[in-house]
């Protein structure tokens, strides 16, 4: 099959097999996504980030932990591209290794929080009645606390470590997803296609998983991608307060915290990890915007 016909095969209005139909739908989405330049830019940055995390030991010019007190707080130079920190460690190497931690935090939170939210929100919206009342009041209680304070309380109770920080962030991040999923479910619940599935004899579990979840997931994915920046910043915040990653782990938030003491005289110590957080947050936001064009055309701007 030549290249041109493969495109036609993918865009066909009358797919011949299940596989062609599915691939065609994905390709359509990709074309929409690709049309959004900024979103592509975000995607490229994130791919680079993942690449960086995978190959960190080979990419990093030096060890992230090796100290050199003689060369501490050195400004950016040919030897240390982004300078060194208070213990003479190469900031670039620490950033590269830190990308693993950032991805771990972001990935885990992005996996746990929306799934809790999806489950609670759709069950509440679909069941209605007192189930809805109980689940949504619990959600309200979580929402009533400022996120970071609640996360602080969790970490304080569980002990400071990167794993607990992730857990705390996930536990505080789910309520907005639950509300979103519930709102979506309420609009879908009375749709004719749900009534039609009922008439086929579909039980509540099947309706929930096969009919309602697929429609809620797309808006949740968009929301998660847009919230990702906030999660990174919360993780950095916990790190900054010393409740996330423990020294000497090169977590970006903790690195800013370390640089705080010298911020006026040796700006690069705090600024470089700050810049990294900024770029990755921006990339996730742009990606989220592009995903919205693909998954949720209603919400897209004109």
């Amino acid at each position: 099959m030549s290249r041109m016909t493969r495109r036609e095969w993918l865009l066909s209005d009358a797919p011949q097999t299940r596989r062609q139909a599915r691939l065609g739908a994905i390709y359509q989405g990709w074309l929409t996504f690709r049309a959004n330049r900024l979103a592509m830019f975000g995607l490229v940055i994130l791919i680079l980030l993942i690449f960086m995390a995978i190959f960190a030991p080979w990419l990093a010019p030096q060890s992230p932990f090796s100290q050199n007190l003689a060369g501490r707080l050195a400004p950016p130079s040919a030897e240390h591209w982004l300078g060194t920190d208070a213990l003479g460690r190469d900031i670039l190497s620490r950033l590269i290794h830190g990308s693993r931690i950032t991805l771990f935090i972001v990935g885990t939170v992005a996996l746990i929080a929306p799934i809790i939210g999806l489950f609670i929100g759709t069950v509440a919206g679909f069941a209605g009645g007192w189930t809805d009342q109980v689940l949504m009041r619990i959600t309200d209680i979580f929402l009533a606390f400022p996120k970071l304070i609640l996360a602080l309380a969790f970490v304080a109770a569980l002990g400071a470590s990167i794993g607990n920080a992730v857990l705390a962030l996930a536990l505080t991040a789910w309520p907005p997803y639950a509300r979103l999923a519930r709102a979506e479910t309420l609009t879908i619940r009375h749709a004719d296609y749900i009534a039609a599935a009922r008439l086929q004899g579909a039980g509540p579990m099947r309706l929930l998983i096969r009919h309602i979840w697929p429609l809620c997931i797309s808006s949740l994915i968009v929301r998660v991608a847009l919230d990702m920046a906030g999660i990174i910043l919360s993780a950095a915040g916990l790190g900054f307060l010393g409740l996330g990653a423990q020294p000497p782990m090169p977590e970006w938030g903790a690195m800013i915290s370390d640089g705080r003491t010298y911020i006026l005289d040796f700006w690069w110590v705090a600024a470089m990890p700050g810049l990294a957080i900024f770029i990755v947050s921006l990339a996730f936001n742009l990606l989220g915007d592009g995903l919205r064009d693909v998954l949720d055309p209603k919400g897209a701007k004109e």
């Binding site: 749709a191 004719d192 296609y193 009534a195 039609a196 599935a197 008439l199 009919h211 697929p214 429609l215």
Partner: peptide
């Protein structure tokens, strides 16, 4: 049963 609005009675996904 067959419903009124064929745009609302088929699951979009």
């Amino acid at each position: 049963m067959v419903f009124q609005d064929p745009y609302a009675s088929l699951h979009p996904r």
